[in-house]
Simulated scan of single mutants.
Amino acid sequence: MAVQLHAITFDCVDPQALARFWAAALGQDVDPSDYPGIVTIGMGQGNPFYVFQKLDALPSGRNRAHPDFSTDDYERDCARLVGLGASVVAEVKENGIRFTTFTDPEGNKFDLTDE
């Protein structure tokens, strides 16, 4: 059996607030949670789903991994993400690929491409 993407997990200070950001960005709802410090989006709807877990001491430095997302309306969704609180880190066009690197409200990096 091959490895499959199961979940994307964000270590964060405020799981509820970060889950609300990502739920709005992805057009989904925040799941109800029975676990203190853990909030999810898309649990039980197949893989991947998103997990936001509270850590009292976040590691400093750059992300060791980040999610990539695609869209059919690149300009609209770039503007929408910024309106939700994302920050643009870089806009890249190379080798026929266009993507924007963002950070979410807690500084986690992610990319959006039109591919």
Score class of each variant (00 low, 15 high):
M43Q: 15
V92I: 15
D31Y: 01
A86W: 12
T100W: 07
A65L: 12
A25L: 09
D14W: 03
E91F: 05
S33G: 12
Q53F: 08
D104P: 02
Q53Y: 09
G37F: 02
I38D: 12
C78P: 06
F99D: 05
N108P: 00
G44V: 04
I97D: 09
D14M: 01
N108M: 00
F102G: 04
F102H: 06
P36N: 15
F102I: 06
V89I: 13
E75C: 05
A86H: 09
A25P: 08
C12V: 11
Q45C: 10
D73I: 09
N108Y: 04
D77I: 04
Q45A: 15
D72W: 02
L18V: 00
F21A: 01
E75V: 03
F49A: 02
R76D: 07
A23S: 03
D34P: 03
I97F: 10
N47R: 09
R62A: 13
N63T: 09
L18R: 01
C12M: 10
S33Q: 10
V39T: 14
C12P: 06
F21R: 03
P36S: 13
Y74L: 14
D31T: 00
Y35R: 11
G27P: 03
G42N: 12
W22S: 01
R64A: 13
D14Y: 02
S60D: 11
S70L: 10
V89G: 06
A90V: 00
T40V: 05
